[in-house]
């Protein structure tokens, strides 16, 4: 289980498990890049990112897979859903690796977020906002120490943003993971322990 993420690029940034961080910057400054650097998806930076003291660059391919499966849950800005899979299948393709959530739980989340009717529809037929909610459910359906949310409510109305925040608060209270969320003005309405300005 990961407890700390330290970043030494231009300025030292320290992320701690169980706490919430909001990364803020103007468009194009590097919020999404920062999240990609943390998971080792990108390595085009100078400096060091360490997870529990170990440089992410030193992780092998299999170690990174294990990291994405059980430690770092991502909700990417570009969502990364599979267009030909249905709403449910897009969640299940993550869940089937660890069998972390039951199908009933997933269905309940679809209903809470108002996309129950999208359960059997291919993702390519969903609006961006609906896809954003599917991607959010998918991120909740894997065990993790940190949940990384890249502009999670950018295409959601305030009501859905609040529902998402409520689900998140409840889930975090049970699982104690840390949240690193980026924001371009519209912020996920949860309590943040620290606002990180890039």
């Amino acid at each position: 289980m990961i407890t700390n993420i330290d970043i030494l690029i231009h300025q030292p940034i320290h992320f701690e498990r169980g706490k919430n961080y909001c990364v803020e910057a103007a468009s194009g400054i590097g919020k999404s890049s920062l999240l990609h650097f943390i998971g080792g998806f990108r390595t085009d930076y100078e400096g060091a990112i360490t997870i529990d003291g170990r440089n992410i660059r030193a992780f092998s391919a299999d170690e990174k897979s294990a990291l994405y499966r059980t430690e770092l849950a991502y909700m990417f800005q570009d969502l990364r859903l599979f267009p030909n899979l249905t709403g449910y299948e897009n969640v299940e393709i993550v869940n089937q690796q660890t069998h972390f959530r039951k199908k009933e739980y997933i269905r309940a989340l679809f209903e809470q977020l108002g996309i129950a009717e999208k359960w059997d529809q291919p993702a390519r037929l969903l609006s961006w906002g609906q896809q954003q909610r599917v991607a959010f459910i998918r991120a909740l359906c894997q065990p993790c120490s940190f949940l990384l949310l890249d502009e999670p409510v950018s295409h959601l109305d305030d009501e859905n943003g609040k529902i998402m925040a409520e689900i998140l608060k409840k889930d975090q209270a049970e699982r104690k993971y840390g949240i690193i969320a980026t924001s371009l003005g519209k912020t996920l309405p949860i309590h943040y322990n620290q606002h990180v300005q890039l």
């Binding site: 391919a61 299999d62 059980t70 991502y74 990364r80 393709i93 690796q97």
Partner: peptide, 13 residues
């Protein structure tokens, strides 16, 4: 894209 996304959600090589 599909391969990259599968890897990003934890599927091994």
């Amino acid at each position: 894209e599909a391969i990259r996304n599968l890897r990003a959600i934890g599927y091994t090589v």
